[in-house]
Structure formats: structure tokens, C-alpha cells
């Protein structure tokens, strides 16, 4: 599938980004360029900094040195820039992070109404559209707690899409799910990929990665140790640690 057009326009530019948690360096001189319409899959062992990296892209984490520019907005201490970036970047979390006191529909209309200034009616019809895209319009009036994990994660995807973002970040979206629910979430993500959305996914689902990725990034100990097209990444990895990781993850 990775043949729909990627433009040459850069949408995310990450340059020499480093970050520390106390004395521990989680990110070390990260460089990454994502073009408009490109789909990047980030993988690596746990604790390698992959989640921290994508959380820096919408400023859920602050980087301490280097630059991150998202769609022309540099992430610095200017809260206006941060707000602009968060409006353009959607995020899906491992633990869904849906709002339990709101119905599915209200989860999806909150952002558009309060941030984008849509009327209730507009927000509702738009939310229903996206809930149909993730194939659960019939659950709209339930509370998230009444839904299965897979359904909740699809609502979380719809909630992000309702903000009409230009970029979607996925932070291990299937890691907290029971095995039989992983597919329904991945199917929705593949649908989304087909629309040409710019996506950055942290995931261990290598089958999914092979299907959708334009760019594979392998991280270890806070560094990007390999960055390649999927064909080369899976068949002929250059780095020893990548080989080891792939052999462990693909052996069963």
C-alpha cells in the first residue's frame, strides 16, 4: 500500500532533540523528518524513548534541547504555538484516556465545540460521521465504561479525528487490548492511512507496520539507531540491535 503520494513538503522537523528525566537521558540527539502524507512507524524495546519522542511532538513532554517544528510552528515556551500544534495534531493513547463522565458522542463533540467553536448541531453531525468511520455509530449514547477495549480505542480515534487534525500520533494503541480486539483497531488505522493522513505510530504490530509504513524508525536507549524504508528494514536491517529485536519479535 505505501504508494499513495507523499508530498515533498516537510510537516514535522525534529532536529538534535535531547531530553532528560533527572539524570537519565531519555532522548539523545534525535533527528527525524516527516513529510506531508507520510506514515512513520517507530519501534524498539521498552524504555527506548519512543513514547517520549512522540509525546514531545504535541508537547505532552517538553524537550530540553534541539528544535521541533510542526507545520511551521516551533514548539517553544510560547503557549500560542503549543495550542496551534495541539489543534493540528491528534493523539491516541495506550490507555484510551476517554472522559468517563461523558457519553461517546460528548467525548467527540467536546473539542470541536470548545476549541473549534462549532455549534452543538454541527459538532454532533460531524461526530456521527467519524463514529461511522470507526464503525460504532450505534454506541454514540453510551458511556465509555459500557464499551469493550477495542470499541473504546476506536472512539478515541474518532475523538481525535473530530478535531480534523493534519497529523495523527498513535502511542501503542493496541498494547492494552485483548488479542481479539487488536484487529478491529488496526483495521480502522489502515482505513485512516488510506485517506492519506500523516501518521506516526509507536507499535509492536509488525504486520501493520509492513502494510502501512513509508518509514521505519528503530530506537534503542534514547537514540534512533536505524531509519529505513520498510522493505529494507525487514529484509536487510543494518544494525545488530535491530536484527536482534526483529528476530525476537518476528520469531513467533
Amino acid at each position: 500500500m505505501p504508494d499513495n503520494a507523499i508530498s515533498t513538503e516537510t510537516i514535522i522537523q525534529i532536529e538534535r532533540v535531547s531530553k532528560w528525566f533527572g539524570d537519565f537521558q531519555v532522548l539523545q540527539d534525535i533527528d527525524l523528518t516527516v513529510r506531508h502524507g507520510e506514515r512513520v512507524v517507530v519501534c524498539g524495546p521498552s524504555g527506548s524513548g519512543k513514547s517520549t519522542l512522540i509525546r514531545c511532538i504535541n508537547r505532552l513532554e517538553e524537550h530540553q534541547s534541539g528544535r521541533i517544528v510542526v507545520d511551521g510552528n516551533e514548539l517553544d515556551y510560547n503557549t500560542k504555538h503549543i495550542h496551534k500544534v495541539r489543534c493540528e495534531v491528534g493523539m491516541v493513547f495506550q490507555q484510551f484516556n476517554l472522559f468517563p463522565h461523558l457519553t461517546v458522542l460528548e467525548n467527540c463533540t467536546l473539542g470541536p465545540m470548545r476549541v473549534r467553536g462549532l455549534t452543538k448541531k454541527e459538532a454532533k453531525s460531524q461526530a456521527m460521521e467519524y463514529l461511522e468511520r470507526v464503525r460504532i455509530p450505534e454506541q454514540a449514547h453510551k458511556h465509555p465504561s459500557a464499551l469493550s477495549g477495542g470499541q473504546q480505542q476506536r472512539v478515541a480515534i474518532a475523538r481525535s479525528l473530530c478535531m480534523e487534525p493534519r497529523i495523527m500520533l498513535f502511542d501503542e494503541p493496541t498494547s492494552a487490548l485483548d488479542p481479539e480486539m487488536i484487529k478491529e483497531v488496526l483495521d480502522v488505522m489502515i482505513d485512516l492511512a488510506e485517506t492519506g493522513m500523516t501518521m506516526i505510530c509507536v507499535t509492536h504490530e509488525m504486520g501493520f507496520a509492513r502494510t502501512v509504513a513509508h518509514q521505519m524508525v528503530f530506537m534503542d536507549e534514547g537514540r534512533i539507531v536505524e531509519n529505513a524504508a520498510p522493505e529494507q528494514f525487514f529484509s536487510n536491517p543494518k544494525n545488530e540491535r535491530t536484527k536482534l529485536f526483529l528476530s525476537q519479535i518476528l520469531s513467533h
Binding site: N58, C87, G90, F93, F96, N97, F99, S160, C162
Partner: peptide
């Protein structure tokens, strides 16, 4: 996570 979820939609 609730705060992060809210931040991610620009609240």
C-alpha cells in the same frame, strides 16, 4: 491521562 487526553484535543 485525563488531562493529557484533554490537552491532546487542544483544551
Amino acid at each position: 491521562g485525563q488531562v493529557e487526553g484533554g490537552m491532546s484535543i487542544g483544551l
